[in-house]
Amino acid sequence: MPNSLIEVKNLKMYFPVVSGILVPRKVSDIKAVDDISFDIRRGETFGLVGESGSGKTTVGLSLLQLYRPTSGQVLLEGKDLCKLRGSELRQVRRRMQAIFQDPYSSLNPRMNVFDIISEPLGIHHIMSPREYRRKVEEMLTLVDLDPGMISRYPHEFSAGERQRIGIARALAVGPEFIVCDEPVSSLDVCVQAQILDILDSLQTRLNLTYLFIAHDLAVVGYMSNRIAVMYLGQFVELGTRDQIFEKPLHPYTRALLSAVPIPDRAAEKKRQRVVFADETSGALTPSNGCSFAPRCTVGDEQCHEAVPEMEMREAEHWVACWKS
């Protein structure tokens, strides 16, 4: 049994849909995350891909307990985080941090770099305020920023530099686990490459474990050891990077991969495209079975009637599909 840092069991995160102004009542639920189970192993990067609205971010926020899950367990070294409250929860949060997508809105424009990076130190009472300055300078050096910039404000930095500040803030409290939620999607390609390399080298140096969320399959493939593919709140496939990219089993994974254009003319000409029904193909009949069935090209009646469970097809490779 590999060494799991985080184990997620039957995680569900539903958001109520409320209707009525005078007497609001719950009319239904939006099942943003619907019964998923997986583990994240110490030192690995676990990638999460899927289209917008598939629930990737909700998974990340539920692990951090920024959303309290509707049901299920999130175990950090065997301890269920969903049951923790108050100071107990705060202690655990020191071990898990997040890096967000937009380096413009995730940094407070009225705080300078020192305030931004030292704020979590104060919240977690990690050291005496006299030591903050030294710590902040150390963190800036860690992400390849000049410690001389300590009293500058976010607007004085480029997008890539701001993202480094975000990374420094996340790492200041010495976490083991980081949720990277689309950390490079708003950056230019060359800056993307720099941030990915920093994340990569920090992982080795500080023995970090990442949950890496992105909609860009190439980026997730570059960073991750294992990858889960999400569709409408559920995992449809889970495997190692090579299994997902070279031997994808689920029709959705195949369609997703084939939609990604490759920046190589020769390779692009040789490719075969997998198509599936899109939003314009009329009313998609909801199915009682597989959630992908209405858009699937290989499905039949069975797929519309019964929900496929995640099954292991070979070591590490899981898929939820009747037809593959």
């Binding site: 060359c190 993307q192 490459a193 990915l196 190439a218 493939g221 190589d264």
Partner: peptide
């Protein structure tokens, strides 16, 4: 061209900075 990760290639270091 070297900056972009590719889905058809195994991991190789990207040309950063």
């Amino acid at each position: 061209l070297e900056c972009v990760p590719r889905i058809d290639k195994k991991r190789s270091r990207l040309a950063a900075s």
